[in-house]
């Protein structure tokens, strides 16, 4: 039975990856009309990707989802709001601060800032700037998870928050320095890694499940939405304050 499940996962992974392979091959051979540079690495790489996706999906069901939901239940049973919120903040902050995509974007942003004359043209100034930006995004994700968890506890409708958040972004945009706009908008997208997402999803759904009167579908989702909205606001404010 376990073997059947594994085979099903492998078949699913292949099915999920097939479109990428088709797009790349069709464009390379028919549009750009160049041979595939290294067929051996393409094949080995694709086998690795299929294996990787299979293991990931296997581990997801075994650990990330159960951990998130068990902890959500345990916090609900413990009934201490303070510890739940502390955990929420740490989870948001901790998963973001070490995120490789964010580190890369922070360094790029520092380059732009020093080119634009916003900060001194030295390595230490750039490193400081990149670190402050990363810290800003990580804190904003921590705050986002706190707000999201409080929303689930209180059962407040999600769309008020999101629409409000977007209105804040729209209002901040004219005041933010041009150079930081692209980074600010992108920073919302890069904060959520493949490990954070399942954990946050499970946390939200677990909380919504363990509180009476909450519907997991309507109330359980939305943590990731906050986590990708607040960094935009925080990074823009960061840009405005630094100017």
């Amino acid at each position: 039975m376990w073997n059947n499940r594994l085979i099903k996962l492998i078949v699913n992974s292949i099915r999920d990856l097939l479109p990428i392979l088709i797009v790349v091959l069709v464009f390379q051979l028919l549009v750009v009309r160049q041979p595939i540079p290294d067929i051996a690495s393409l094949i080995v790489g694709m086998v690795c990707v299929v294996m990787g996706l299979t293991f990931f999906m296997l581990g997801l069901e075994q650990s990330l989802f159960p951990i998130g939901e068990t902890m959500a239940n345990a916090f609900a049973r413990k009934g201490s709001l303070f510890w739940l919120l502390a955990f929420s903040f740490c989870l948001g902050f901790g998963t973001t601060v070490a995120e490789p995509a964010l580190i890369a974007i922070g360094n790029e942003a520092a380059k732009i800032a020093s080119q634009g004359g916003m900060i001194a043209d030295s390595d230490s100034a750039r490193a400081d700037y990149a670190w402050e930006l990363r810290l800003t995004v990580a804190i904003s994700v921590g705050v986002a998870v706190i707000i999201g968890v409080i929303r689930i506890l209180k059962g407040w409708p999600l769309h008020y928050f999101i629409v409000g958040g977007y209105l804040i972004v729209i209002c901040l945009t004219p005041f933010a320095p041009r150079e930081i706009l692209g980074i600010a908008y992108d920073s919302g997208g890069v904060t959520t890694s493949s490990i954070t997402v399942p954990l946050l999803t499970a946390l939200g759904i677990g909380l919504a499940n363990s509180i009476k009167g909450r519907n997991p579908v309507t109330d359980g989702f939305g943590l990731i939405a906050f986590a990708s909205l607040t960094p935009i606001i925080f990074v823009m404010s960061f840009g405005i304050l630094l100017r």
Binding site: V44, G45, V49, G59, I195
Partner: peptide, 17 residues
Amino acid sequence: NVLIGIVFFLEGLKLAL
């Protein structure tokens, strides 16, 4: 499994795609 999965996934992408 998640860890191995992500490493293989990234490694394969870096190699192939």
